[in-house]
Simulated scan of single mutants.
Amino acid sequence: MPRPDEDLELEAIVSDAIESHLGSAPAEDFIRDLLVRIKGHIGSENKRKNLVGEGFEDTLAGLLRRWEPTVRSYDIRVRPALHDLPGFYAPRGSDKTKKVDLALVNRATGHRVLVSCKWSVRSDREEQFMTDFDAYSKLESSGKSFDYVLVTNEFDPARLAAACENRSGNAEIFTRVVHVNPDGPREAYAAPNSGSRARAGGMERAIGHMASGRLESLQRWFESLSA
């Protein structure tokens, strides 16, 4: 029987990799200690979130690089520094370098699309959206507009609705709010006993944004990029 926390599949992968590289089978104690360290690193809460987040960003970039219209028209950059994109200032003094999850730059027009890729939208991220938008706006140097797009797979109706309604002054901060597949949350909200009365208002708002096109599908966003 396996020991507690034993992962035979991971152990086999690591053992095979070490043996093929060094030419001899590693000791069991060495493998056990190495697996504990690997699991500790991956299992750390922030590391886990980073793995999911960066995996989502890389997957979205991979799809864009396989979509012929975007490949033809855009430079697609994953996690670039903001000042490495055309039309943005470098950070001033000791200010921290600002990064973007994903950026698309139209080769013909120079138009910039800054994408916030969030598999889920926690409450702290709702604050981060405004902070990022303010930073992008203050560091814009060309005097030209840019798109700020949210791509998410969030299912919580209130958070989806809030993302659609998030404003700076009298303007919505997101040019577009994109869900991987809006049919998923739409079906979930329509299911019997799908939520409490407290959630009903969020569901109604989110469904309204889907109906108006404010909350759109990944497919529709891709098609807009090819227009």
Rank of each mutant, 00 (worst) to 15 (best):
P4W: 10
D5T: 14
D16S: 07
D16K: 08
A17G: 03
S20T: 07
H21V: 06
H21S: 12
L22S: 04
A25D: 06
I42G: 11
G43K: 12
S44H: 15
N46H: 09
E54G: 03
F56D: 02
E57W: 05
D58R: 07
R65S: 11
R65Y: 03
E68V: 06
P69Y: 01
V71C: 00
S73I: 07
P80T: 00
H83E: 06
L85F: 05
L85D: 03
P86T: 03
F88Q: 00
A90N: 09
K99E: 09
V100I: 15
L104Q: 03
L114A: 13
V115Y: 08
S116C: 14
W119V: 09
R122C: 08
D124L: 02
E127H: 09
D132H: 00
F133R: 11
A135E: 11
A135N: 10
S137I: 08
S137T: 15
S141N: 11
S141F: 01
G143Y: 10
F146Q: 12
F155E: 06
F155C: 00
P157G: 04
R167E: 12
T175F: 13
V178C: 13
A188W: 00
A190R: 04
A190K: 05
N193S: 01
S196P: 02
R199L: 07
A200S: 08
G201E: 10
G202R: 07
M203Q: 12
A206D: 08
G208R: 13
A211Q: 12
E223G: 14
